[in-house]
Every structure is written in C-alpha cells, then in structure tokens.
Design a protein around this nucleic acid. Sequence first.
DNA 1: GTACACTACATACC
DNA 2: ACTGGTATGTAGTGTAC
Length: 816
Amino acid sequence: MQNINFIPIDYNNFDYEGKNYFNIIGRDDKGKRISLIDNLEVYFWAIFNEGTKEKKINEISEEIAEIKIRGKNGDSKVLKTEIYEKNFLGKNYKAIKVFISNYKDAREIAKKIKFKEIFKIREYDIPYTTKYILEKKLRPLNWYEIEGSVLSDSEEFGGIQNIEVDLCLKLESFKEIKKEDFHPKVLAFDIETENFEIGKGEILMISLVGENFKKVISHRNNSHHNFFEKVKNEAELIEKFVYYVKKNSPDILTGYFSDGFDLPYIKSRAEKLKVELNLGLDNSTPKFRKGAVLTGRINGIVHLDLFKFIKTVYSQYLQSETLKLNDVAEELLGEKKHVWEFIPINKIDSDKWDEFFEYNLKDGELTYKLFQKIWADIYEFTTIIEEPLFDLSRYSMSNLVENYIIHNLDKYNEITEKKPPNESIKLRREEGKYEGAFVFQPIAGLYENLVFFDFTSMYGSIIVSFNLSKESYIEKKDKNVTEVDIGRKVYFSKDTGFFSKMLKDIIKKRKEYKKEYNKNPSPLLKARSNAFKLLSNASYGYLGFFGARYYCREAAASAAAIARSQIKTAISNIEKKGYKVVYGDTDSISFLQGNKTKKDIHDLLDEINSKLPGIMELDLEGFFKRGIWVTKRTGEFGAKKKYALLGEDDKIKIKGFETVRRDWCDLARKTQNKILELILKDGNEKRALEYLKKIINQLKRREINIKELIIRTQLKKPISNYKSISPHVSIAEKMKKIGMDVSVGTLIEYYISESNDKKSLIRERAKLPDEKGIYNMEYYLKNQILPAVENILEIFQINVNELFDGERQRGLVEYG
DNA sequence: GTACACTACATACC
DNA sequence: ACTGGTATGTAGTGTAC
C-alpha cells in the first residue's frame, strides 16, 4: 500500500477480460507522474410508471437481472438490480438501478427491457468518463489523498506496467484535500509545412516551447541559433519531435488550431513515412475522432487546442476581428507573430531560413504564453463543470451548461434526461422561431445627458424567478401555476424545480466571486466569476437549443415574453416620472437625465427595484454626456442597434455602426469613427464636416493607400455551396485557383478596382490586395465613405450626397 | 435596358 | 449542429415594364 497526494488530469478507460477499467493519469505533489487504475460498477435506470405495485416492481426487477446478450466484445449481462426512490423531471418515481458488466453494451441491454410498467429508461447515454466522475467523485484537477496498491511489478490488467509513469497504483481509497494550486507541465508546439492541406507536402520544421525549453527542429537548413536542431530528414524530424515530447513529459501538449492542422498533419506524414508516432504514455499514436471538426487525443497527455477553448469562452469578449493566433495574441498578450511571407520553399534563400525558424519559434512561444494567460479560465471551468480537461477544453457553450447540470443533479436525487434522438431534434427545429426580445424604436438625433439602466442577468433571473424549465412546464392549467402568454397560454408550476435552483445558485456564486474579486483581485477569482457569468448567460439559450437534454421551447419563449413585459413596464414607469426614454434593447433602457440630479436617478432605480419580481434586479450602467442615434438607410425611422455614446470619462462607445463592422474598409470605418467622435465631443457637426472634406479630397486625389481600402469578408461555407456569388466568394475562387489557402472561416480580402465597363458587377471589379490595379474612386465614395457618414450628418440637415457626389464635385472646394 | 423587389449573406446587438 | 432572437445593410438575382 502506498499513500500519496494526487491530482487527476487525464482519464482513459480500457477493457480487460470483458470488464471496464479506468486509468487515470495525474501527478503527486512532488511532481511524479502517476497512473491510477480503478474500476466502476456501471448502471442505468429503468423508471416505473406511477402507481406500479410493489410486487410487480420486484418481479420485473428479478427478470431484468437475468438479461444476457451477445455484446460488442463478447458476452454481456446484467449483474444485479436494485430498487430506489428517484426523481425524474422533478417528479418522484420508483426506479431500478440496472448494473451491467460492460458499459459499451448499455444501449443494447436497455433495448431488451420492455415492460408496460416501465415508462423511461435513462442514463445509458452518459459518457463513461462522466459516469465515473459522477459516481466516484474523483474530479479532475482536485487534490486527493490516495491509498493504493502498487501495480508496477505485477502482470495484472494484461501488462499495464508498460505505461510510462513513475508509479502505477490500483486505487483502494481516497479523500479530497483542500488545495487550489496546480501548475501543469506544458509544452506548446507549432509546425510549418510545404502545403496547407493536411499531409500534402513535407513538414519543414517543428517548434517546441516549454518552461525553460525552446527548440526548433528542421532538416531543411542549418542555423546558428542555439534553439535550433538539425535532423537529416522529415522522418527524423518527427522522431525528434516524439523524443522531445517524451523527454519533457508534459501534462499538456498545446497548440493553436492543432486539432485541425498541426497534429493531424504530423500524423498523416508519420503514416506516409512509416514513422512510429508513439506519443501516448502507452506508446499509442494520437487518435482522431471525426465530428464536425477533427479532435486529436493522445493517451495520458492532454492534447489541448487553445483555439477551441478561446472560441467558446473568449470570443464574445474579444475585440479582435479574427481568432487567428496573431490577433488573439496581440489582444491578450500585446505581442504579435513575426512577419513571414509564404513563398515556395525552393525560393527561400539560404540566409532567409533563419528568419523562418525564428517565425516558427515565435508561434510556439505565443502559444505557450497564451496557454499560461488563459490557464486560470481553463482550470476554473474544469473544476466547476467537473469534466476532464481534454473534453472540457473542446466543449461548446451548450455542452458546458449541460455538463454542469449533469454533474449537479445528484443533489436533487434526479435521474438525467436523455439526449434527444435525431428524430426529435428534427421536430424541434421544425417548430421554428419564437418571439424574442423587445427593441425600443429610437428617434434619430443628438442627445445630451443620458442615463443607462440594465437588468442584471435578465433572462437568468427571469428563469429563476418564474421557475421556467422543462420539469416545471405543465400541459394543462392547474392551481399554483404561473401563466405566460407566448402566443398561446402556457403554464409553469410554482414548485421550484432543480433547473431554477441550480441557476439561482450560479447567479449567486457569480455575485459572490465578483465581489470577492473586486476586494482581492486575482486571475483565478476573475476566471471563477466569469465562468459563472457565462453559465448564467448561456442557460436561457440552452433552454431553446434543439440539441439540449433539457430543451423546453415553452420555457425559453416564456422567458422572452416575460422579459418583454418587464422592460416595457420599466420604460413606462420611467416615463411616468417625467423622463424621456430614448432607447432600449432587450435588457437595457436609456433615457434623458433632464434637470434631475444623480440622487433622483438612484431613487428612481430603488423604486423600480422594490417592485420587481423574484431575484430580478435593475442596475445603473452609467451616465453619458452625449449620445447619437441615426435613421436607417432606408426609411425615416431611427435605426435600432446603432448608436454612439460619449461617457463621463470622455470615452467613446460605439455600437453597431460601420466603425465596428469588419466587413467595411478601414477608410470608411476610420472616417466614420472620427466623425462620430468630433460630433459627440463638440456637440455640433462643423469640425466633422471639415474632416470629411479632407478625406474625400484625399480619396479623389488618389492619395489613399490601398491598405485602407481592403474589404474583408469571411467565407462562411464551402465555395460551391453559395447560391449567390458575392465579391468575396468570387475572390475566394480566384485564390483557390492560384493555390492559396482558402477554407471555411477564411477572412477573404479584396479591393474594388477601376474598370472600363461601368455596368459590370462589383465582383468583376474585385481584386486581391496584391493584384495590380487602381482603386475605384466612385465605388469607395458612393459605396463606402458616403453611406458610412450620410445618416450621421443628416441629423444636421446636411445632405452629403449633394455636397460631395458627382457633378457637384466642384462645390466641395468652395464649401466652408 | 432599367428599376425595383426579393433573396442571400455577413455581421452586429443583447 | 454544437446557446437564443432581433436588426441593419450590401450585392446579386429575377422580373416587370
């Protein structure tokens, strides 16, 4: 027997003699790598109809206990059955816990259970590792004091000793210990290749970066850099890569988009060159699961693709216009990639290779630093959701919410609902949209002294306060229900269900950790508070997501209906007090402060809050010196979701305008931005108009750099799927033709050039940024600059089209 | 041959 | 397919005159 302190990192399962076992890889507190072998009694639930007689339950239970099938890997059977009182969707039932020999056959065995008294069979579809964590409560990235028997010298489990660890134990007992600190051993990697398509062309070099470790390996050229290591060919390059991974013995091997590029590329080349890519601790090769996107798994080492985690957890907060390593690193680290122009490798001068190696190393370094930067978030999410790092880092928002629910259901004695089968997903999607948020119709104009109120976690607080969820939804009107009109009347029980309780807890924790963070700021507390915020925000979307286990369209539609009614009530209450409401969107209201004091505003807020239902809360977002709203391009109404504000700190906040849209050229965006800024700061249009005049003159004199005129549009689907060939699709076709990297998600860049044929389509005048040509002045004036500013200046009765366009061109010089 | 309505698409807001 | 609906606005496409 041996006692150690242990932190679980990676969970693997294996079969031995027809039974399922776990091999949990982690560290002890001395940094030694440990493998922990454990088994799990696997089971699922068979739930009885209400009122089934005790005798019948016992009979059926005995019958089920006899089930045997020919399973995937030999004979499989029910081991035993036990009867419990359980809850399912908030209601109490008798249920049989059906223990089986091999979890892989759970579905098949469940199919054999056919009794009219049994109305649901559940939990045969919970991933095995999730099941293990739920049952044993040996959670990822928590510390445990472990007692285990040493397996290293035994032949047990068919030679488990072949795993490259310091110690292998069979788990006997454990208890959780309080310890929050864990710094994993991390190795970042990045490759450069001859081709962008997986496996086509050689890998030219691989960089590896860890703590006090930097390496670039290549067979292509020599270098005097001390981080450089020369190998003789590509095969040896891959071997060296494996060698250094093993030598570093990382807990985590991280890359940026490495699920989709680096790892599959290496695997493909290794297969071609017949090199053993035995990265796993059991010397296995990485295994890829082909879902919508590839997922590469290495046994015992967590392969973590930073891109995926950043996409789900960070992207909505990032300002970057793409999620490419360069943009994300610049925003999060303040560091950019090196500049390297990709040219065919035979055209790289021998003295240029050093630059290429440096470029490769920098990518590795950025990836490593990015990992360290966001580790707090990954760590917090892992411990909050209680899912293994490997899976967690790849989860979508709905996966995160759902797994939080699954891992918290036992507090409510609940049996987990199943995943919707494909047929119900189809039906759910056919139900179509339901009515969503209310947006206030603004009147275009420049306003002074604005106040912004907003509801804190509005949808979440409504779901909690009105108990909206699948389990509380009732088909028929009953007593003790909440009635909501979503086009038809729907009803929800007032007996608080687990969904509302869980969400209430999430919102409460978010508040606590935010408070704690403000008192005592640390990356970990910030990450914790942020994780709960994201979970709370996503819970409403989860209710309306067709793939959710706890999907409830009625609950989602009701949350939206109540939100509409609550914001309208708040608006009318503010108006009744004599304020003029200017704008509002979903959960926010903006109105004029007028001659009232800040204290008046706070009193108003308190008064509204005293009447709000449940845990709903209205908050003061801030005061603003000025705000501008414009009309829509078509029609005289004020445009929704487009406005700009000047804060008390003189900071400008711009929403929805072309300035913040990446599919407009920089010149139009910068010009509009400057004009908004000048108008907001001056309170009139004089200087803004001067500025516009200057820019337009530059444009007409062809003094604008083509870089300012590049339009960027993302390719959202494969080129062939487009019904309508817009400029960016046409450019994408052109790029593909000349062998450039174009794939779904690529940001296509182009500019519009002059052409003799006035009638030609815009796409026919679109050119690649480095393609020769002169910019189309008329296009940039009429389709970029003027549209971006006309509705703003229209507020001051200025018609920019008359001022600056066409034959009135000469008037421009005379103006002002 | 042009004008206009409609559709497809991208991207924002919350 | 991988949380929801609301909204603006461009460019292409189709059709009426």
